[in-house]
């Protein structure tokens, strides 16, 4: 089984950085780049899958400037077999679409069974590249995978995918396929010294525009479908807080606004309940029922 993992070198957002007012970009000085955490889990998952099977190959791939090579080296220490670095000035200022397009072209000749991407990058977090690759190669995709097993039948995988509010979907997908791996699917290993030493001798193949076989207008800035026009401090929008009680007396409304509360259910100004435990329990149940929060209402 051959697995391709796409990794990204991302800005470590836990380290403070600043905006350059003129270029509306980041002040490059002192930025720290790391392997994207979700991609690290994707590499780990691929290596574990290979180990379980006893054979196979894990190929890591990145598109980025020269320093991104460090990320590939790190993936090699985690157990990947070889690495491809898509490196060309023509790839500069790629957006999610042109990145995915270029990666898909590099993946196509490898004839792999699975393609892993991290489900979201730490810095921009567009969560698009996996889907672009899948579409370019006309493959099925499953997003935010939290559990992976080889399927009962040959040529399929059995997965769990993250849904909203903690739910999971059990899903079966035919191979080859693109999976975006959720950070936390596994705990990536800590590479040992021998693994480090071994990784030093592994090959990192550089793929430029010619080797990729695409035209320069299809990649990088020219192939991009979106454009950044500004970067600045966060200005939260005013959230609409329509409540069923928005018809209340204006004076009362003002009072609520000035106290910083727009009472969601009008109870906040209500009395404090006191009494026997049983009476109070009854009141709590009534409150739950009024708001559709009793367990039956959830089924």
């Amino acid at each position: 089984m051959r697995i391709v993992v796409c990794a990204k070198h991302v800005l470590d957002t836990s380290i403070p950085f600043e905006i350059d007012e003129e270029s509306k970009g980041l002040v490059e000085d002192g930025l720290v780049y790391i392997l994207n955490p979700a991609d690290r889990c994707a590499v780990e998952e691929a290596v574990r899958l290979k180990e379980r099977q006893g054979s196979g190959e894990v190929i890591v791939m990145t598109l980025g400037p020269a320093p991104a090579q460090e990320v590939l080296r790190e993936c090699l220490t985690l157990g990947a077999d070889r690495a491809l670095h898509l490196l060309d000035r023509a790839f500069d200022d790629s957006d999610a679409y042109s990145t995915g397009f270029a990666l898909a072209h590099a993946i196509e000749p490898l004839e792999c069974d699975l393609i892993f991407c991290g489900s979201q990058s730490l810095d921009e977090g567009c969560s698009q590249v996996g889907a672009v690759i899948a579409e370019s190669l006309d493959l099925p995709q499953v997003s935010a995978v939290t559990q992976l097993e080889l399927g009962a039948t040959q040529g399929s995988v059995s997965l769990q995918r993250k849904l909203d509010r903690g739910g999971r979907e059990v899903i079966e997908c035919s191979l080859p396929a693109v999976l975006t791996i959720e950070a936390g699917i596994n705990e990536p290993r800590y590479p040992s010294l021998p693994m480090f030493m071994e990784a030093l001798h592994k090959e990192i193949q550089v793929v430029d525009l010619d080797a990729l076989g695409v035209r320069s207008q299809e990649v990088g800035r020219r192939g991009a479908l979106t454009k950044h026009i500004g970067l600045g401090p966060i200005r939260p929008r005013t959230k609409i807080t329509y409540t069923p009680e928005s018809d209340i007396d204006p004076i009362e409304a003002l009072r609520l606004m000035m106290s910083g509360q727009t009472a969601p259910s009008g109870q906040q100004s209500g009395d404090i309940l006191k009494g026997e435990p049983d009476y109070l329990a009854q009141q709590i149940i009534r409150f739950l029922q009024q708001n559709g929060m009793t367990p039956e209402a959830n089924v």
Partner: peptide
């Protein structure tokens, strides 16, 4: 101040009583 329902009680009494009612309803 930030509650929609305010109950002044000993939680040792009121919580089990509420839980019991919920179980009975189920």
């Amino acid at each position: 101040q930030s509650a929609d329902l305010k109950v002044v009680a000993d939680l040792r009494e009121v919580l089990p009583a509420t839980a019991k009612r919920l179980r009975d309803m189920a």
